[in-house]
Structure formats: C-alpha cells, structure tokens
Computed example of a mutant assay.
Amino acid sequence: MHPPTAPAIHVQGIEKKFRHNYALRGVELQVATGEVRALLGPNGAGKTTLVKVLTTLIKPDAGVAQVNGWDVTAEPKRVRSSIGMAGQYATVDGVLTGFENLFLIAKLRGAGRRGARRVADDLLARFRLTEAAGQPAATYSGGMRRRLDLAAALVGSPPLVILDEPTTGLDPEARLDTWDAVGELVADGTTILLTTQYLEEADRLADRITVIDQGRVVAEGTSDDLKAQAGQRLVLCVAEDGQLAPAARALASATGAQPDVDRRARRLEVAVTDGSAALGRALAALRSEGVEALELSLCRSTLDDVFLALTGRGRRTPGNRTSQAGQARPEESA
C-alpha cells in the first residue's frame, strides 16, 4: 500500500533529453488524491513524454517522479500496479469481444476466472456496454471503443487513471460520450491526469489545469484563475470593409494595443486590463473616427485566449486574418 498522505503524483525537476533536444526541462507537478488535473499543451510540448515517465515507459534523466507514493525509477512494478492507462488510440483487441477484452486484462492482473468474469461484467454495465459485450470490439463505434478502453484502464480498481489525449480523432458525439464516461470516474473519486489539446475538454473536466510548453510548465491554476490572468477583451464588429482601418486606429488609441482584425467577419478584438474604462474610451475614439459599431462588447477571456497568450502563439480566427487593418501577418504574407 502507498502512504495515505502521499499525493497521487509528485514530480520535481524532471528532465528528459532525446539526443540534443530536451523534451522536459525541469517540470514540477503535484496532483492531489481525488483531483482531476488537465495537462494542456500543443503538439511537442512534452505532455506524452511526461506521461511515459509517470507510467515507467521511459526513465527521466534527472529529477524525481513519484506515483501514489512510489518512485517511478526505483519501484516501477509498484507504480504500474497502482495506475490505469488509456492512450491516444484504442488499445483493445478488435478480434476479441468487449467481454473477452476485459476478462483477459483482469486475468493478467491476477484475478481468477470467477473474479475476472465479475470484473468484466461490472465494468461493461458501468460503461453501458452490456448489450454489446458479445460483439467483436472492431464492430464498436469510436465512442464505444473509447468507453471500452476506459473500462480496461479501470481493471484492478487503480487509484490513479492517466488519460493521454483520450478524445483524439473522435467525432463530436463520441467526444461527448467519452466526457460523460470520464465524469463517471470523477464522481467515484478516481484521481485523473488528463493530457489534452482540446481547451473545452480541460475547461469542462479538470479541477486544475497545468499548461506545458516546450518542456516547461508555464502556468497552473483553476480555469477561472487562468482566465482572470488574461483579463478581458473588447470585441468590435463594423458594417463595411472601409471602416476596419479607422476602427483599428480607434481601438489602438483607446487601449494602447494593436487589435486583431478578422477582415472577412469585419471583427476586431483587443485585450484590455481595465474593463469598462477601456470600453468608454473605445466608444469615444470610435465617435472621433466616425465609425459606426454594429457591436461593441466587453468579454471575459476564454481558455483559448489564455493558452495562446501563455504559449506565445498568435490568436487565429477564420478568414483573412491581419494584425492591423490592411496589414497581413508576416507568416501569412511569406
């Protein structure tokens, strides 16, 4: 048994290098028992490398990583016996039925035939797969296969389940189905580490969010905490293309920052820190420029805004995107 006071995950100063490239650069992470933590970051940020360290698939070059109180390097067998894992793609055997998949995994976990049958039946019922229990997993829909994958990760009742981008490649309906299944795990008190690129997924499921970029943790907190750091945004829509340039000048004058401009939607956005005061200045500046606003609103920043600001990526919207009216971003004019 792991110490009852131990956090589910304790990571301190973890580094991992592949040839000349660092995948992890001194990562720090603490996940409390019963918590749902989202690890958010773009492709290549280091999320999957960290998961591989925590699941003992690779060894770190430096630092300490403990899972359920066990050191991943010194006690890998104890770590593996105390976790469940569902990767980016379904790992169940498509030839076997849903029941046979879970029965086999339970047997490999050390259960007897009667115990393995009970575990498989219970998990199939829990994830609403009883009617499909006798069908080959290859015939399952994407959402059903993902639910079966999650069920497989729960064989043995591990206190910690790690989900590495569990909804990658799923259609919207299957993604919602998976979120519901994860919600059931949360309701039962299972500790979950969830890596994802989907901002809505992190916003909906996680108690706390850790943002990782280029192998480093760049921010951590609740969704509300992170959104508060990003402040608010002024959103302006105008009726005619010819008003984009004077509207951009007006917002720049009112806020001290160049607005993002979506020419196709005739929409301008700019981050502000003083909310209603900036809104008043914008109204005055727009009148001075002779711009008629179809819409002018003050919006709370979304998790998308937070992510893009923290990772240094430009905010992108559909259409002919410019940073100033009539001036293309460098990457789009190249």
Rank of each mutant, 00 (worst) to 15 (best):
Q229H: 12
Q229Y: 04
Q229G: 10
A230C: 08
A230S: 15
A230M: 09
A230R: 01
A230N: 04
G231D: 11
G231R: 02
G231N: 06
Q232S: 11
Q232I: 01
Q232P: 05
R233W: 14
R233I: 05
V235R: 15
L236Y: 08
L236C: 05
C237E: 13
C237H: 12
V238P: 04
A239R: 06
A239S: 09
A239F: 07
A239Q: 08
A239C: 06
A239K: 04
A239T: 03
E240P: 02
E240Y: 04
E240W: 02
D241R: 03
D241K: 00
G242S: 07
G242V: 06
G242H: 05
Q243K: 01
Q243A: 12
Q243Y: 04
Q243S: 11
L244I: 03
L244W: 06
L244Y: 05
A245G: 05
A245T: 06
A245E: 13
P246K: 01
P246V: 00
P246G: 03
A247M: 07
A247W: 06
A248R: 00
A248D: 10
A248I: 00
A248E: 10
R249F: 04
A250Y: 03
A250V: 03
L251G: 00
L251P: 06
L251I: 02
A252D: 14
A252M: 11
S253M: 14
S253W: 12
A254N: 03
A254P: 07
A254F: 15
A254R: 00
A254S: 04
A254W: 11
T255E: 11
T255R: 02
T255C: 07
G256H: 07
G256Q: 09
G256Y: 08
A257C: 12
A257W: 13
A257L: 15
A257Y: 13
Q258T: 12
Q258H: 12
Q258K: 07
Q258E: 14
P259S: 06
D260R: 06
D260C: 05
V261L: 10
D262N: 15
D262T: 03
R264A: 12
R264P: 02
R264G: 12
A265Y: 11
R266E: 08
R266I: 00
R267M: 10
L268K: 02
L268M: 09
L268P: 05
E269K: 00
E269P: 02
V270N: 04
V270L: 10
V270F: 08
A271W: 14
A271S: 15
A271H: 14
A271C: 13
V272K: 01
V272H: 03
V272C: 09
V272S: 03
T273D: 15
D274K: 02
D274Q: 13
D274S: 05
S276N: 11
A277N: 08
A278V: 08
A278C: 14
L279D: 10
L279P: 07
G280F: 15
R281V: 01
R281D: 11
A282M: 14
A282L: 12
A282P: 14
A282I: 10
L283K: 12
A284K: 05
A284F: 13
A284Q: 15
A284I: 11
A285S: 08
A285P: 04
L286K: 00
L286D: 08
L286R: 00
L286F: 02
R287W: 10
S288W: 08
S288P: 01
E289G: 01
G290M: 09
G290Q: 09
V291F: 09
V291M: 10
E292N: 08
A293H: 10
A293Y: 11
A293G: 08
A293C: 11
A293L: 11
A293W: 12
L294V: 08
